[in-house]
Amino acid sequence: MELLISVMVGVMIATGTYLMLARNVLRFIFGLILISNAANLMIFVAGRLTPESPPLIPDGADVPPDIVANALPQALVLTAIVIGFGLFAFALTLVYRGYQSMGTLMSDEMRLAEPEEDRQ
């Protein structure tokens, strides 16, 4: 199971990197989203996978009776997903606004902040 997900993480990062090599900013963001999900999965695997044993402590006991799933990476991933969601919502809006005002999505043509005539 760990191996399978590790391979999946690798594939996602490879695909994401490929997309990020594009000049089109929108593709770049899509690649970034893929990689961010791969990072989340990576945290999940790093916490070791323990299927079908929720981290529940029975009434009266102080510790779980058996080996249970690690709850911490789940909490981390949840936090990271929420943060990532916010950031990407912002990034996509920004790219859209940028497209509206600059009329391009190609990173090569985005030279407003660093105009060429600087070489003077």
């Binding site: 990689i35 791969a38 407003l112």
Partner: peptide, 23 residues
């Protein structure tokens, strides 16, 4: 907006790297 796109994207890359490192 132009500066923002560059700033945001590169910072997102670094953030994801940081997160993966933590994992």
């Amino acid at each position: 907006l132009d500066a923002g796109i560059k700033y945001v994207t590169i910072n997102l890359v670094s953030t994801i790297l940081f997160l993966a490192g933590i994992g």
